[in-house]
């Protein structure tokens, strides 16, 4: 029902500020994800692996091969892992839901929204999106960070302000909110999209740095 792996390995701190390393934990799920106890067992397995990371970690929950997920399982696996994102300072955990299909989207969306959470996701075609409870302004700011991939704080702020049609202060607020919610990574000098963090080779995936 699940395959766990640290396939992307550890990354050096360069480009990620003070975080000593970023660990990407892949969890691929299969078949029918039903019942709360199943979800709890799978989540605990993933959390145990994430707990070993000394720095930031990205949990990639790959749902590409999942036939269906019920609400209880979506709450246990997805919402509870996402709930812990943004917590823990330099040891924060970020989450990326990969391969979200038409069938799995709704239970996940509702499970997240019920807890007032949002999560970064990719559809089966790889298109990025936010699921859960999210304001339009945050969504647009997130799209801009995703477009940039990885960029310095000043450049990201400027781009987001332009996208939102606001000043730098409001753009900074939006970026801080996204960081606090674990929807982007920010370390004071850079903002990085979760999708970029989750990729093995960041050098080819990120936008021009400052």
């Amino acid at each position: 029902m699940t395959r766990l792996g640290r396939s992307a390995g550890r990354r050096p701190s360069s480009g990620f500020g003070d975080a000593p390393e970023v660990v990407v934990e892949h969890a691929g799920f299969f078949s029918h994800l039903v019942t709360r106890s199943t979800g709890r067992a799978l989540r605990m397995e993933i959390e145990a692996r994430l707990a070993r990371a000394r720095g930031a970690a990205v949990a990639v929950l790959d749902l590409t091969h999942v036939v269906m997920i019920d609400y209880a399982c979506a709450d246990e696996i997805v919402a509870k892992i996402v709930e812990r994102t943004g917590q823990g300072g330099a040891r924060r955990v970020l989450a990326l839901l990969r391969g979200v299909s038409e069938h799995t989207r709704e239970p996940i969306q509702r499970a997240l929204a019920r807890r007032g959470l949002a999560a970064c996701a990719e559809g089966t075609g790889g298109r990025g999106m936010l699921l859960g409870e999210i304001r339009d302004r945050e969504n647009r700011a997130w799209e801009e960070v995703t477009r940039l991939g990885r960029a310095g704080t000043a450049r990201t702020t400027e781009a987001v302000a332009r996208r939102l049609g606001t000043g730098d202060r409001q753009a900074t607020e939006a970026l801080e909110t996204l960081t606090a919610r674990g929807l982007i990574f920010g370390d004071g000098s850079h903002y990085v999209s979760v999708a970029v963090m989750a990729r093995a080779d960041t050098s080819t995936a990120s936008a021009d740095d400052e």
Partner: peptide
Amino acid sequence: KASVIHFSIMLSEVCQNIVE
């Protein structure tokens, strides 16, 4: 076509109530 999945989710939730 999606109804099969929706029915399965419904079935899972209602049966889980027994266990939980």
